[in-house]
Amino acid sequence: MEIAIQLVIAGILQGGLYALAAFGLSLIFGVSNVLNLAHGEFLMLGGLFCFLIFSATGLNPFLIGLMILPFAFFLGYIFDRFLMRPLAGKKEHIRLMSSILVTLGAALCIGDVTSFLAGAEEKGVDYSMPSFFWGDLYISYLRLLAMVMIAGLTVGIHYYLKKTYTGRALRATTQNIRGAMLVGVDTSRIRSVTFGIGSMLASIAGVFYVVLLSISPDMGLTVTIKYLCIIVLGGLGSLIGSLVGGVILGLTESIVSYYNPHWGQTAAFLILVLILLIRPKGLFGK
C-alpha cells in the first residue's frame, strides 16, 4: 500500500512537471498554430542556466529559477518576433511546413551550440532538503515543495487566462483571431507574448528537471516530442487537458517503471496511441 501511494505521488509529480512544460507548448499552438519543435530547448536552457548560476553562487535553485524568468520571457518573445512573425502571413499549409523547418533548425542549432559551450555531459543540481516520515510514508520536502509550486503555477496560469486582459486577449486570439483583431487586440504582440510565456513555463520546468532529475544539451527534441504528445492526448489548447494528459503519462511511467524500468516509456506511448484511437481530438479537445 505504501508503495502504491509512493508511486502515485511520484507519478503525479512527474506528470505535473510534464504538464507545466506542455501547457506552454499548447498555448503557443493555440495562438499561432505553430508546432514549436524548439520548445524543449527553452526547457533545457532554463535548467542549464539554473545549473550554471547554482554552481557559481550556491543560491537556492528555485530562487535562481525565479531570477531567470524575465530572461526566459525575453528569449521566447524575440524568438517569435524574429523567427515566427515573418511566416504569419503565409498560407496555412506553407506556414505549417515553414514553422516545422524553422523550429527544427533552431532546435538543432541551440542544442549543438549549448553542448559546444557548456559540454555535452548530463548536468544536475545537487540540492537536497530534509525528508520526513508521515506514518509509514517517506516524503521528501523537496518533492513536496515542487508539487506545491506546480499546483500554485497551474492555478496562477488559470487566473491569468481568465482574469487579466492580456490573458483574455490570448484566449480570444486562440478562439477567433479575426474577432480578436476587431476588438483591437494586437495579435502579433499577443503571439510574441505567448511565446514568452511558453518559454517561461518551459524554463521553470527546466529548473525542476535540473534539481529533481538532470538535463543534457541534446535532450531538447526528445522532450519536445513527449510534450507534443501530451498536448495531443489532452486536446490542443486545453489547460485541464495538458494537466490530465501529463498526469496520465506520469502515472503510467512511474507505475510501469516500478515493475519493469524499461517498459515505462513504452507504456506511456502505448497509452497515448490507444487514447487517440478512441478520442481522435484528445481527451478535452473539441
Binding site: L87, L101, V102, G105, C109, G111, D112, V113
Partner: peptide, 14 residues
C-alpha cells in the same frame, strides 16, 4: 556542424 546544419534548415524555412 550540427548547429550550422540547423541554421541552414532554419534559414531555408524562414
Amino acid at each position: 556542424h550540427t548547429a550550422a546544419y540547423g541554421l541552414v534548415i532554419l534559414l531555408v524555412g524562414l
